[in-house]
Amino acid sequence: MIFLGIDIGSLSCDAVLIDEEKNILASSVILTGAKNIESIARAKKNVLDAAGIMEKDIRSIIATGYGRARVKEKDAAVTEITCHAKGIKHVIPETRILIDIGGQDSKAMLLDPDGNVVDFAMNDKCAAGTGRFLEAMARALEVDITELGDLDKGATSDLVLSSMCTVFAESEVISLIACGTEQKEIAKGLNRSIAARTHSLVKRVAGNIDGLTVSMSGGVARNKGVVKAIAQSMNLEKINTPETPDIIGALGAAIIGFEKIHR
């Protein structure tokens, strides 16, 4: 039996296929774009083609992410919070604190030793510290979003962006550029401001993180600079990141499908 998880987020649409042993058969990450129904179909086709599997072989489809209701063929919709927790438990089982920074939301979750969510906190309505925020900053710095992760290498100053708001932060970055501040210093300042926000979210679910393994999922976990800044802010040696952080939600969804059948 094959299980499909689809995570349709604001920036990317991810799909994961797993088998009876919860092995990942295929995964796909594409941009959601303006028409999310088309993206869902495309992501699904990608994984089916990659794994060489027919649609009729799929035993269950679980949808997650903000567009989960739009997945017509789903068996159930489960929120990305539960799915990310489930997904990370599979790849980094010792995780007790999970940080997930997605396109429009950032979240901190406290998990019990069995991987169940005990508490969670999400950013408020504004996009500060999320993937969208980084996109806006990359735009202001005139770099590609994928270059942002290494941009802070060699930065030495302790510049911190004071503005929390995406709009203000963007104009702050522009004025820093105008003042001749080096790109790497601005990038580091940016990472620090995201780290402060994220750390604050973690504090809301766990006052004391001593001895708890911290992991991070979501697309922003690919950004080494941000991950490092969060670890520094939380006084941690490291934060665990899965090899493919962006598919953790979809993986969790697929596993939930598997567990629903095998319950």
Binding site: S162, S163, M164, C165, F168, S175
Partner: peptide
């Protein structure tokens, strides 16, 4: 709270 001050 000066953290959000847009000085200019």
């Amino acid at each position: 709270d000066s953290r959000n001050l847009a000085k200019g």
